[in-house]
C-alpha cells in the first residue's frame, strides 16, 4: 500500500542528505519526495510517498524519528487530504495530430506551455489517477520527455500539521 508521509524537518544544510541516506542505507524505497520551505523559514516540509506494509512503515517512521532534524512525521494516508503533483510532458506533435492532442489537453484541463514545429510541451496538475490517465492518452503520440515534481499533500479542513511549532531559538543564559 502506498503511504503519504508529511514530514516537518529543520531547515538545516544536509537535512535532505540525512533523509535520503537513511532511506538508502536501511533499504527503504522512495516513490517520490518533494521538499520546500514552509510558512516558517526555519522549517521545511517533505512530502514522501513510500510503498510498504504496516511493519515496514512503522520501522521507517521510527528510523526517521531518530534523525535529530526531523520534527514531526504524519502519515496522512488515512486522513482526508488534498494532493497535487505537477507534470511537464513533451509530446511529439506534427501538424496532422496537433488538434487531437489539443483536444485531450482541454478534456484534462491541462495547459500547453511551449510549442515547437514537432512537439508540444504540456503542463498538468492533479492527483495520481488523472496524471496516469493523461499520460496513457498521450502515449500513442510519442512522449519524448516527462518530468514530475513529486506529490505534495495537505490535510483537508482546519487541521494543520505545522501548528504550535515553536521556533528553536536558543535561550541564552
Amino acid at each position: 500500500m502506498k503511504h503519504i508521509l508529511s514530514v516537518l524537518v529543520e531547515n538545516n544544510p544536509g537535512v535532505l542528505t540525512r533523509i535520503a541516506g537513511l532511506f538508502s542505507r536501511r533499504g527503504f524505497n522512495i516513490d517520490s519526495l518533494a521538499v520546500g520551505m514552509t510558512e516558517n523559514s526555519s522549517v521545511s516540509r517533505m512530502t514522501i510517498v513510500v510503498e510498504g506494509d504496516e511493519r515496514y512503515l512503522e520501522q521507517l517512521n521510527k528510523q526517521l524519528h531518530k534523525l535529530v532534524d526531523v520534527i514531526k512525521i504524519s502519515d496522512i494516508t488515512r486522513d482526508a487530504y488534498v494532493d497535487r503533483e505537477l507534470v511537464l510532458i513533451k509530446v511529439s506533435a506534427d501538424a496532422a495530430r496537433r488538434a487531437e492532442i489539443m483536444q485531450l489537453v482541454d478534456i484534462f484541463r491541462a495547459r500547453i506551455v511551449d510549442v515547437s514545429p514537432k512537439t508540444l510541451t504540456i503542463e498538468i496538475t492533479g492527483n495520481d489517477g488523472k496524471i496516469i490517465a493523461f499520460e496513457d492518452s498521450l502515449r500513442p503520440f510519442g512522449i519524448k520527455e516527462l518530468v514530475r515534481t513529486g506529490k505534495i499533500a495537505m490535510l483537508r479542513g482546519k487541521k494543520a500539521s505545522t501548528k504550535n511549532h515553536t521556533n528553536k531559538e536558543e535561550e541564552e543564559s
Binding site: V68, V70, K168, E169, E170, E171, E172, S173
Partner: peptide, 12 residues
C-alpha cells in the same frame, strides 16, 4: 562567549 544553559532541539 556565553555558554547557553538550555538549547532547543525540537526534533529530539
Amino acid at each position: 562567549f556565553k555558554y547557553p544553559k538550555k538549547v532547543g532541539l525540537p526534533g529530539y
